[in-house]
Amino acid sequence: MSRRPLLEGLLLAMWLIVNESLALHHWLLGTAFALGIAALVRALRPQIAHPRRLGVALRLSWHVLCDVVRSNLAVGRIILGTLRQQPKIGFLQIPLEMRDPHGLAMLAVIITATPGTVWAGHDPADNVLTLHVLDLQDEAAWLQTIKQRYERPLMEIFE
């Protein structure tokens, strides 16, 4: 019995739509396809996330939303050329304490969703994040933002 009936149902529906047929053999092939893919997904992701602390997650979501809006405005000013100084493009090395793969994935999503920043790499041996920043004026502020505003709440949620 699968733990992902929604995934299997969606895969079966996709199979039927792609084949443009409701014939019995497509139902059987689609079901086999859906069950096989669901089994492969389970094998690729053996660890299940167990997020906690809904209040922390909601507060983090609010911070991320505010930061995305603020970053959109800042990047817009850079693109439109309304800044008096050129942006200081750079890379920043950030040592992380968080080890949970789900927390790291969420941190990657947050950073990549924020305009002007890109998750450029992660060294799992040293647990160091490489961050590319479009306007790296204050490295200490970026370090504190990532560590306190994002990593700390993600650790409370996932670890």
Rank of each mutant, 00 (worst) to 15 (best):
I94E: 05
G30F: 02
E159K: 14
E97F: 08
G36S: 05
A105V: 00
G81F: 12
L80F: 15
R59Y: 04
I110V: 15
L22E: 00
L7M: 14
E151R: 07
R52G: 12
I146V: 15
F33M: 01
T117G: 08
S2E: 15
P153S: 12
G81Y: 11
A13M: 09
Q85G: 13
L107M: 15
P124R: 03
E8H: 02
V75Q: 07
L10F: 12
D135E: 05
Q85R: 14
E97T: 10
L40S: 01
A108E: 01
A140D: 07
N127P: 05
E97H: 12
L29R: 07
W119G: 14
P101Q: 02
A32H: 04
P101V: 03
M1L: 00
N19G: 01
P101Y: 01
D67A: 14
D135Y: 02
V68P: 10
A38D: 10
Q47N: 02
W119F: 15
I111S: 14
L107N: 13
I17E: 07
L11H: 04
V41N: 01
I48L: 10
E97Y: 12
V64M: 10
G90H: 14
E156Y: 00
V118F: 02
M14L: 02
G121Y: 04
L65P: 15
A39G: 02
F33K: 02
A108H: 06
D138M: 09
T145I: 03
V69T: 09
G55Y: 01
L24D: 13
L80I: 12
A39K: 00
V118C: 07
M1G: 09
V18S: 07
P46T: 06
A141E: 12
S21M: 11
G9I: 08
P5R: 10
A39P: 02
V41F: 01
L73W: 12
G76H: 06
F91T: 03
H132T: 04
M155V: 12
F158W: 13
G103F: 10
L16M: 14
A105G: 03
L129M: 09
Q137V: 03
R77T: 09
A13Q: 12
R53I: 01
N19T: 06
A140E: 05
L10T: 01
A125G: 08
A105P: 03
S71W: 14
R45H: 11
W119I: 04
Q47I: 06
L129C: 05
L129K: 04
V128D: 07
A120H: 01
A113S: 15
R42E: 15
C66F: 13
L154V: 10
T130R: 15
R77I: 00
A32S: 08
W27Q: 04
L7Y: 15
A13W: 13
L54A: 11
A141H: 13
L104K: 02
M98S: 02
I48Y: 11
R99L: 11
M106D: 11
H122P: 14
V133L: 04
A140Q: 09
T145A: 06
V64Y: 13
A34T: 00
T82M: 08
N72D: 06
